[in-house]
Amino acid sequence: MKAIEIKNISKSYGDITAIDDLSFEVNKGEIFGLIGPDGSGKTSIFRMLTTVTLPDKGEAFVQGLNVRTDFKKIRKLIGYMPGRFSLYQDLTVEENLEFYSSVFNTSIADNYELIKDIYSQLEPFKDRRAGKLSGGMKQKLALSCALIHRPEVLFLDEPTTGVDAVSRKEFWEMLDRLRKTGITILVSTPYMDEAAKCDRIALIKDGKILNIDTPDKISSSFQRTLYAVRSADTHQLILDLRSWDKTHSSFAFGDNIHLSLNTDDLKENDILEYIEKKQHSDINVAKIEPSIEDAFIELLKQDENHD
């Protein structure tokens, strides 16, 4: 039995199609990432799997239970952290946690071991109102509340959006430790660097899956040779590369530009030659391995060309 099974699910809100004939499976104990921009349907998938909304078409199962008919049973097995901070801002850290543990008929003490790692960082602020916490702390509290009843499947909808890079890293370290307890985690994120930390990911756009695989295999689905190109004037370099008839794609990645060509005949030297001709200085060209983001951009490009 899979932890999550989705078969040909569709969901529309008025004339907007949020999920379009979507299918995927999540194995028990894995961290599965839904990677896609806002509005790609990630939240709709979460709401449907957490039984908050019903799909228009198709079937979905959580721990083998049907989201349409067994929703009461599912609700006892899952922990959910919605995209928006959904705790009571006027209640303190401890009061929020106590409320959710009582609602699930358990207590903080019973499950302290599970949340200790996360909650111990919050404990110095347990009398602070949740609304007064920083972004990173709010995420930790929300995660603690979602875990308090020992769920079998954890749903985290964009847990790190708007959170700074350091807190994001800490959050993923926690997920990694949670994975060791055997819990299944479905997590969504718009950050590509987080995708690499999942066991498997699905790239989503407009309610459709562009690709599903392990992060490594997704990266290697990028089949062209990729170069990192750099010069003193990044903006001008982009404009120059884009106007080159040999360019397949050129996108900024930090202070580099990731360039792929529409022919396999050219090598680093040819690129260097073209850039030098355009009067750039401090030029550097190097062959690199594609990342998930390169692969996603390529998939998005193909998808747009289809439209």
Binding site: R47, T50, T51, V52, K72, R75, K76, I78, Y80, P82, R84, F85, S86, L87, Y88, Q89, Y100, V103, F104, N105
Partner: peptide
């Protein structure tokens, strides 16, 4: 506030 969404999936 979105807390209803969480209340819904509690028992």
């Amino acid at each position: 506030l979105g807390t209803m969404e969480l209340l819904m999936i509690t028992p």
